[in-house]
Amino acid sequence: MIAADLAVEWIRQECADQGACGLLVLNAFGVEQQIPSLGRFAAEHAVTTPGAARDRVAPGVGPVLAYAPVEKTLDFATDLARGSSLAIVESVHGFSLEGWARQLGAIDLTRPDEHPEPIAPALVKAIDRLDFYKDNGFGDQFGKQQARRILQDLYDAGLLERNVILGALAAKEASSRALRNLSKLIDELDPS
């Protein structure tokens, strides 16, 4: 709840600074009623989900707060935040934002004086190569083959960091489909 409170406070300040209305992005409607600060924010600003009508909100209208997003919701929230600000409250049981934060240099509002550790250069190179092959969401034979080769090299080198890879690719605008498919490929190599 502390993270949600801090994110709401930060987004409210961003709204004031930008003279814009905020937007709360959820996986499903109703979640905001379980956390008082989100409920108050929802009463004052727009609320949407990836499943809601696309004409409900427009990209780049104002600061976006995404609460406990899964891959699809993160992709949606990132698109809506273009040209504005984005705060995300991570769920301990959901999509890990470690790689996303490290890729973008995002600040953890619960520890604002700490900065994310940079991604190891060898892993950055592999992530860039995966990014190059992501166009078909790793759903075609060629994309899967290239991803498997890159992931196998990472596994052999002891660098197969699932959360960092998936999060960094999310930061590089990989689709939720690409992230799901890549996650399955990682699981084939390292089911732990």
Rank of each mutant, 00 (worst) to 15 (best):
residue 28 A to W: 11
residue 28 A to C: 07
residue 29 F to C: 02
residue 29 F to A: 12
residue 29 F to H: 14
residue 32 E to R: 00
residue 33 Q to G: 13
residue 34 Q to E: 14
residue 34 Q to I: 06
residue 34 Q to C: 08
residue 35 I to Y: 10
residue 36 P to Y: 03
residue 38 L to D: 08
residue 39 G to T: 06
residue 40 R to S: 12
residue 42 A to S: 13
residue 44 E to N: 07
residue 44 E to A: 14
residue 45 H to W: 06
residue 47 V to I: 08
residue 48 T to I: 04
residue 48 T to N: 00
residue 49 T to W: 07
residue 52 A to T: 12
residue 54 R to A: 13
residue 55 D to C: 10
residue 57 V to W: 07
residue 59 P to C: 05
residue 60 G to M: 01
residue 60 G to N: 02
residue 60 G to V: 02
residue 61 V to K: 15
residue 62 G to P: 10
residue 63 P to V: 05
residue 63 P to D: 04
residue 66 A to T: 11
residue 67 Y to D: 10
residue 70 V to D: 15
residue 73 T to S: 09
residue 73 T to L: 04
residue 75 D to L: 10
residue 76 F to T: 02
residue 80 L to T: 01
residue 81 A to N: 04
residue 84 S to F: 07
residue 88 I to M: 13
residue 88 I to V: 15
residue 88 I to A: 12
residue 88 I to N: 04
residue 90 E to M: 10
residue 94 G to C: 07
residue 98 E to K: 10
residue 104 L to W: 04
residue 104 L to K: 03
residue 105 G to H: 09
residue 109 L to V: 08
residue 110 T to D: 07
residue 111 R to S: 12
residue 112 P to I: 05
residue 114 E to N: 07
residue 115 H to Q: 14
residue 121 P to G: 01
residue 121 P to N: 06
residue 124 V to Y: 00
residue 127 I to G: 05
residue 132 F to E: 13
residue 133 Y to D: 11
residue 134 K to A: 14
residue 134 K to Q: 15
residue 139 G to T: 00
residue 139 G to V: 01
residue 140 D to L: 05
residue 142 F to W: 10
residue 143 G to R: 03
residue 143 G to F: 02
residue 144 K to C: 14
residue 145 Q to T: 12
residue 146 Q to W: 00
residue 146 Q to E: 14
residue 148 R to H: 11
residue 149 R to S: 12
residue 150 I to L: 05
residue 150 I to H: 05
residue 152 Q to N: 11
residue 153 D to Y: 00
residue 155 Y to G: 05
residue 156 D to C: 04
residue 157 A to E: 15
residue 158 G to Q: 03
residue 158 G to E: 07
residue 160 L to F: 04
residue 163 N to Y: 04
residue 164 V to I: 15
residue 165 I to P: 06
